[in-house]
Design a protein around this nucleic acid. Structure first.
Lengths: 201, 201
DNA sequence: CATCCGTACTTAACACTGTTAAGTTCATGT
DNA sequence: ACATGAACTTAACAGTGTTAAGTACGGATG
């Protein structure tokens, strides 16, 4: 049924595509995810909403593209902290989340009902980001890089903890009596501590 | 402007109110948050949508009531594990999240754009739940119950880690190669470990 | 009895959303 | 000159939260 979209990406389409993405990104940052709509984006670029559909197929399509861009941004944060140890990597992750709240929202907070059929290949970026944590965790644990599954699981645990931190802060659910910076620093210290001091063999 | 709602809660209104809440809860569990709408709920109980507005003021009003109910459910889970140590409390939290995904979604995952002006008094329940963690953390740390602010902050760190676990699992973002149960158990062990083995004085 | 009044509820609309069928416009190739 | 197809638009559908206006009824008051 929906096989009508030819997925045409010719030379000139690139321009329109990036124009849409740029404006959408702008509006996303300004108004948050729930503040943007296909019509608003369309109006902002001077095209009709249907044009966006011709380019991205659906709002999810545009959504995915923005998520991808967010993953790249995150990767830049993490790459910069690469090699500086687990604590630095954790801090970089949290910094990304707090400094790019709207991107964090669409990347990890919003579930557009179609998260199940996310095109898997688009998650290579996400997995690569996780692998950065796996490396750092393996380092701290005195990695037997044989058991990759185990290291990945532990890296996911670290990621979950960090995600919890960012998610609660971004959602404004942390008690105001608790200083944000102190909370972040203290939490990361706990996370790293759980892996450093010979804990759990 | 919106001061027109008399907030009338007489005898008979209780029935209709709980009728709405029951059906809404049912639909929430069956269809998830995005699957319910005022009109659908109204149709399910044989009233017009406007009637729900007369009872709850807005979708957010109904939403808040459901969140409150969810907080009670969570409290029941946590109370059952009370006194059995931090690990048991953590496990109870995660179990609640995984066994009541739709409630967890509206409680901590969905941000209805008005999370800022949540009526604070409704968060007594939420804070009480957090206090249960504070107690358990204080126990494990060899509590100087003087520094309540510090204990609360550490309890929030634990909560954040647990929230991350549930959030990622519920959102289906954990790599399928990682066993859910093993992941949960391993993560909780790390969390408890971060506080038990004389870590961080 | 008749009138008023407020409660409980409904209908109908507004402005918005994502989405799509059915065009239209227009340059290009034959 | 004609056909093709790509690029783009208009107009609509079905749905959303929300609200103004109105109806029906029951009880109190003149």
């Amino acid at each position: 049924m929906q096989g009508s979209s030819h997925n045409v990406v010719e030379k000139d389409d690139r321009d329109l595509r990036t124009l849409i993405l740029d404006r959408a990104s702008r509006l996303l940052v300004e108004d948050g995810y729930s503040g943007i709509s296909m019509r608003k984006i369309a109006q902002a670029i001077g095209y009709s909403a249907t044009t966006i559909y011709h380019q991205f197929g659906s709002k999810d399509g545009l959504f995915h593209a923005l998520v991808e861009e967010g993953m790249d941004r995150l990767a830049r944060y993490l790459d910069q902290a690469k090699g500086d140890g687990l604590a630095a990597l954790c801090r970089a992750y949290v910094n990304f989340g707090l400094e790019n709240r709207e991107y964090y929202e669409i990347m990890f907070l919003v579930t557009p009902d179609s998260v199940d059929r996310y095109p898997i290949h688009k998650y290579r970026r996400a997995r690569r980001n996780l692998d950065l944590f796996a490396e750092a965790v393996a380092d701290v644990l005195g990695a037997p890089s044989t058991d990759l599954q185990y290291v990945r699981s532990e890296a996911t645990t670290v990621w979950a903890a960090l995600h919890g931190i960012v998610a609660l802060i971004v959602a404004g659910r942390i008690d105001r009596g608790i200083g944000e910076e102190q909370f972040v620093v203290g939490s990361i210290r706990r996370i790293v501590g759980a892996y450093s001091s010979g804990a759990l063999a």
